Amino acid sequence: DRIFMTRTEALEFLLKAHQTAVDKIGHPSHKQTPADHAAIEALDRLLLDVRARRVDQFQINASAAQIIVTD
């Protein structure tokens, strides 16, 4: 599946995904793992790359739809 978004929409989408990941590892019942921190770092890099126009398409994980940034 493909989803087309403007750059602004894609950045909002990534910010929400980032916040969800941060909230998940901050929850008291969740045991933090290196994979959790790696996922947040990957989202940080992706946010910067989309914002800087170095990336025009991405996929958060293998089961997610491919996001295509349109400007």
Rank of each mutant, 00 (worst) to 15 (best):
D44N: 14
D56Q: 11
E12K: 12
A52Q: 12
L46S: 00
A52C: 14
K24V: 07
L11E: 04
D56R: 12
L43H: 00
I60Y: 02
L11P: 00
A17S: 04
E12G: 10
M5H: 01
Q59G: 03
A39K: 09
F13E: 03
V22I: 05
A39V: 13
I68N: 04
S29D: 08
R54W: 05
I40M: 09
K31V: 15
E41P: 02
V55M: 04
A65Y: 13
V55D: 01
A62K: 10
A10G: 01
Q57D: 04
L47V: 12
A39R: 11
A21M: 15
K16F: 09
D36S: 04
T6H: 04
G26C: 12
Q32G: 15
I68R: 03
G26T: 14
A38G: 05
T33P: 07
A64M: 11
V50H: 01
D56S: 15
V22R: 04
L43K: 00
K16I: 11
H37A: 11
S29E: 14
Q57M: 13
A10T: 02
A64S: 15
E41K: 13
R45H: 10
S63E: 12
R2I: 11
L14P: 00
T6E: 02
T6R: 04
D44M: 14
H30W: 03
F58N: 00
L46D: 00
D49Y: 04
L48V: 11
F4M: 09
A39T: 11
D56N: 14
L48N: 15
L15I: 13
D71S: 09
R45D: 04
Q57C: 06
N61D: 10
D23A: 11
E9P: 00
H37D: 13
R7A: 04
H18R: 14
A52M: 13
Q19W: 07
I67V: 10
H30P: 02
Q19K: 12
H30S: 04
I67D: 01
R2F: 05
P28K: 07
I25F: 10
H37Q: 14
Q32R: 05
A65D: 07
N61K: 02
A35P: 04
Q57S: 13
T70W: 12
S29R: 02
E9I: 03
Q59Y: 11
I3M: 09
T70V: 15
